[in-house]
């Protein structure tokens, strides 16, 4: 069997304040194979984004952050890499689509400028003209009309949905080995969202990109993911193939989550009643770690 692109084992994370210490992730283990699309679902504050940040190595250096456990990337132990080696992976071999599109793009530089620099992470001596062409074709693929105007614009001149498409295009443009997509469709209308999902699917199939897809939207997850992890208050409470988890949920939290779907109007997970049995053991549907159906 191949080494998984992402192998998280027994990951713990806590934030230490002046007086208190809050544990945010509790021995989380999670795998994403090459070319696999894995979803991480859970309510707000359950620890989805911090998990993605830890994979990129963005949180480790912050004050008051305590991490234990291991994160393996394509056979390499990330915490054994030097800081520079770890940085070298980012933007080339791993990239992330951030949750908040408009404030995640730098307000002082045009989209074209930022795109150019992202592309240069893969091709350091890429000239402006070539970068423009590549950027334009990527913006086309996320169905941005009038690409020249968008490339010359600053983020504040574009709508939230536009910025989100730009961010998705940037994250895909370097053909990463691992894509961390944190709520990548929230500001998009349904057709564009479907298109971006299709792009990620194509990347997974053509280039073998492993996708960790973080989402509130269970409908989209069911549509997109091969496998699902359900996270609740920093613990993985259920995992397995999408069909297994959706058709045969074993953990009371997952059951409550799925029971709530018909009541969800847009996307997003409603506040669930508090009487969920937290002592219930995690449920792992045994579809094998690769999980391809």
């Amino acid at each position: 069997m191949n080494t998984p692109t992402l192998a998280i084992d027994n990951l713990n994370l806590s934030f230490k304040g002046l007086l208190s210490r809050t544990q945010v992730l509790h021995s989380v283990s999670l795998n994403v194979e090459k070319g696999e699309r894995v979803a991480l679902v859970g309510e707000s504050g359950s620890g989805k984004s911090v998990l993605a940040r830890l994979v990129l190595g963005l949180l480790q250096d912050q004050r008051g952050v305590e991490v234990s456990g291991r994160i393996g990337f394509a056979g390499t132990e990330l915490d054994q890499l030097s800081r520079a080696a770890r940085r070298a992976l980012r933007g080339r071999d791993m990239s992330m689509i951030f949750q908040d599109p408009t404030s995640s793009l730098n307000p002082m530089f045009t989209i074209g400028n930022q795109f150019h620099e992202v592309l240069q992470r893969r091709t350091p001596d890429l000239g402006t003209g070539q970068a423009q062409d590549t950027a334009r074709s990527w913006l086309d693929r996320v169905s941005i009309p009038d690409t020249d105007r968008v490339l010359a614009s600053y983020p504040f001149q574009l709508s939230g949905g536009m910025n989100q498409r730009v961010m998705i295009a940037m994250a895909l443009a370097n053909n990463p080995t691992l894509l961390l997509a944190d709520e990548p469709g929230t500001a998009l209308d349904v057709t564009v969202q479907a298109q971006t999902l299709e792009l990620m699917r194509a990347l997974a199939e053509d280039v073998g990109t492993a996708v960790l897809f973080i989402s509130h939207n269970l409908g989209v997850v069911r549509e997109f993911a091969d496998r699902v992890y359900v996270i609740h208050r920093g613990r993985i409470v259920e995992s397995g193939s999408t069909t297994a988890v959706f058709d045969n949920p074993g953990h009371p939290y997952t059951q409550a989550l799925l029971a709530a779907i018909p009541r969800i109007t847009g996307d997003g997970i409603p506040d669930l009643p508090e009487q969920i049995d937290l002592s219930h053991p995690a449920v792992h549907h045994n579809t094998g770690p690769a999980g391809h159906d």
Partner: peptide, 21 residues
């Protein structure tokens, strides 16, 4: 700000982030 985190996520060096972003 999120845009500095995003710059870090793209692996730009800290000195470049300081000077430019």
């Amino acid at each position: 700000t999120p845009y500095i985190e995003m710059a870090r996520s793209y692996g730009f060096s800290e000195s470049r982030i300081a000077r430019r972003y």
